[in-house]
Design a protein around this nucleic acid. Structure first.
Lengths: 200, 200
DNA sequence: TTCCTACCCAAGCGCTAGCTTGGTAGCTTA
DNA sequence: TAAGCTACCAAGCTAGCGCTTGGGTAGGAA
């Protein structure tokens, strides 16, 4: 993390976290710099000692989260497990990332369509492309090895998984990593084996 | 549809549809009355001949959609098919509703958290409660009859289904009801039978 | 011909948004 | 002990917001 002038600052990090909570609760646009200032115990103008703009706060929040998520995904894929296990680990990693980044994910979901039109947030599309590629590769390979059903459309299955997994961030309770892993297991059962009773 | 004075008006309906597209693309708050006026070929002030407020436009959009959706759901449930078929029809009905109501659904998803805090939109919570009840009842009965897996948590399965089905409204292409039915079929296969190849 | 209704324009009000500017208290370093 | 840096305050700027007001026009009914 760097200040407006390019130097590190703990205060800056704290302000990003404070703003993130407000962004997640009320939306980015509905959150005013005066709200952020109030929550931080500071006048709104004082925020501009740390940041160029309100947009910069959002940028820092989103880019740092996406960098971390992408690195995690790459590690999972590079481990070289088979397609099915890779996909399982991707799902698990996604749920785990919700523990420390609930606000960033919520903002990303609610504001994604709008932000992607801004040049500054062009990296959102880039990152999303790479993520999609990682997931779809696992899905396609799983069809080839026969682990996944032959009539699976990887593009549709990816969006199905993405929407169901990330959608849970809107209602999830933050009870620590353990319950997140349990939830991940339930979702893995649902997505891999379906609702239907085995033997029915 | 009625005007500010309580009389029907086609112009009013057209304005709601125009505003709905803008709300869906840019978000409700980011859409200004001047935007709506421009899109309708009218000065912003002229909108107030038809509506009390910008909020009234949104209210009309959402309430009319929700009324229709709930009526459809009730018809499906009242048909009295078994739990599995009822759930399948609920999913299908949801996808079909996306054809004519993409804008309303998008707005609803992006703005739900915020709108629920406003007294005027209290019916959002009421409707959501009834929808959840209908879906969860089908899920619970399916577990009891043995059609669905015994270890299924109806509350989690409902949110899983809801997020995956409704999440698709963000990326779906509007190619007519036929492709929506095809997509519904793919989702039904995924959610009922899972990704895993049968016999694996 | 007169009136009514539906629809719209022109102008602008009060307010709040993001952001700027000039200044200051307190700590650190030379 | 003076200079410099970090973090902040106080005050206010401009732009744009939702909405209001007063007036005007076209077309059908009486």
């Amino acid at each position: 993390m760097v200040t407006k002038q390019g130097k590190p600052s703990e205060r800056r990090d704290a302000l990003v976290r404070i703003a993130a909570e407000l962004f997640a609760e009320q939306g980015y646009r509905a959150t005013t710099v005066r709200h952020i200032g109030d929550a931080a115990g500071v006048l709104s103008g004082s925020l501009y000692h740390h940041f160029d703009s309100k947009e910069t706060i959002l940028d820092e929040l989103l880019s740092s989260y996406l960098d971390e998520l992408l690195a995690t995904y790459r590690t999972v894929v590079d481990a070289g497990h088979g397609p099915a296990r890779t996909l399982r680990e991707l799902v698990r990693a996604s749920f785990r990332s919700m523990a420390g980044h609930r606000a960033a994910i919520t903002v990303l979901q609610n504001e994604r369509n709008h932000l992607r039109t801004l040049p500054r947030f062009g990296y959102l599309a880039t990152t999303e492309d790479e993520v999609r590629h990682l997931w779809i590769t696992a899905l396609r390979e799983g069809v080839e090895t026969g682990e996944f059903r032959a009539d699976l459309d990887p593009a549709i299955a990816y969006r199905f998984l993405r929407d169901s997994v990330w959608g849970s961030v809107r209602w999830i309770r933050q009870d620590g990593a353990r319950s997140l892993d349990q939830l991940a297991d339930q979702y893995l059962t649902l997505t891999f084996d379906g609702l239907t009773a085995t033997g029915a």
